[in-house]
Computed example of a mutant assay.
Amino acid sequence: MLIDFHAMEEKIIPHMRGGEKEAGMRAYDDGLCKVMQGRLFPGATVGLHTHVTDSEVIYILSGKGKVLYDDGCETLSVGSCHYCPKGHSHSLINDSDEDLIFLAVVPQHGA
């Protein structure tokens, strides 16, 4: 199944999950899995959140930033892949002066 992000309108989300500034998002969601192409503007963050019924894989397509993961911090750049399993917490941060573009996959696991 082809998911054509270029054919989707980008939705601008202010303070995504309680984060700073704005994020752009193109998403496919069939109820079992979300597949998203996201964009964090310079200085923007996705707020710290816990994956209770799902997990998340984030692959960096362009730009750089970092992720707070549980009690640690990981540096991200093009080609980096971050995994947040069910029951863990993370926050994505664009601390650079360019957009951070990423692919995120969020499969549902149930309660």
Rank of each mutant, 00 (worst) to 15 (best):
F102E: 02
E56V: 04
E22V: 14
H49A: 05
I12E: 09
S62E: 14
M1E: 14
Y59F: 15
E98H: 10
H82S: 13
G38W: 03
G19S: 04
A104D: 02
F102P: 04
T53I: 10
M25L: 14
G87V: 04
D4Q: 11
E10G: 06
S80Q: 04
S80M: 04
C81M: 14
D29F: 06
G19F: 03
E98R: 13
G24N: 06
Q108H: 13
C81W: 05
G87N: 01
Y28N: 05
Q108Y: 14
E56F: 07
G87A: 05
L92K: 04
G110T: 10
P14W: 11
L76R: 00
V105I: 12
E10H: 02
P107V: 05
G110V: 10
F41N: 12
G43A: 03
A27L: 15
H88C: 13
G79N: 11
S89K: 08
A44R: 01
G31S: 03
E74R: 15
R39I: 13
V57H: 07
A44I: 07
L92N: 05
I101T: 09
E56N: 02
K34W: 11
P14M: 11
S96W: 07
A111M: 15
L48V: 12
F102H: 08
K66D: 03
E22A: 13
S89V: 02
P42M: 04
H6S: 15
T75H: 13
I60N: 03
I3N: 08
D30L: 04
H49Q: 01
L103N: 00
S55H: 09
I3E: 02
G79F: 12
A111Y: 12
V57E: 11
L32A: 11
K64T: 11
M36Q: 08
